[in-house]
Design a protein around this nucleic acid. Structure first.
Length: 165
DNA sequence: GCCAACGTTGGC
DNA sequence: GCCAACGTTGGC
């Protein structure tokens, strides 16, 4: 007997100067490798919990208008992030080896762009008060999103004429 | 650019 | 294992 897992949802931060929702949509198959995660908690989410088809809130950070900018989905399992082996990369990690890679990435497929749902708007929504990304001092670049939070955001804030397959 | 908050490092 | 120092994140 196979237990039916509930759907999973995530919020993933990207600096738009680096990879915006437009950049992701313009990529081949609208899919980008989520490179550069250098935090163990975020890595463990990719390694242990995230699965193909999980919903993703594509969040723009470190920019003039931080907030949710699009909807995406997890498009692959986790694998070694090649940038950790590249001495020219800002994400280079001298202590990592191909035999025992320390850092992982997975593919994220952008589905559509939304209007910018700002941090302020998220904070103003009582149903979203528990969101990890809104908690004081939060720095995680990948955070789980509750099904109710996901539904609230898609219902209230986002166009609904396209759905995740 | 500031700075609060947090994660990591490394000496002990 | 403790913890101070340091580096990074990320909103403002």
């Amino acid at each position: 007997m196979i237990a039916l897992e509930p759907p999973r949802y995530w919020l993933m931060k990207s600096e738009p100067a680096d990879c915006s929702i437009d950049d992701a949509l313009a990529a081949a198959h609208a899919t980008v490798p989520w490179t550069g995660v250098r935090n163990y908690q975020a890595r463990n989410f990719m390694r242990d919990a995230m699965q193909v088809g999980d919903g993703v809130l594509f969040y723009h950070s470190s920019c003039p208008e931080p907030g949710i900018a699009g909807i995406a989905r997890v498009a692959s399992g986790a694998r070694a992030d090649p940038s950790q082996f590249d001495p020219m990369s800002p994400y280079f990690d001298a202590k990592s080896t191909p035999a025992k890679p320390r850092w992982l990435l997975l593919d994220v497929q952008a589905l559509y762009k939304t209007r910018l749902i700002s941090l302020g708007e998220l904070r103003a929504h009582p149903a979203l008060a528990g969101m990890r990304v809104l908690q004081r001092g939060n720095r995680l670049s990948i955070t789980p999103v509750q099904a109710a939070e996901w539904a609230c955001i898609l219902r209230d804030c986002v166009r609904t004429d396209v759905s995740i397959q």
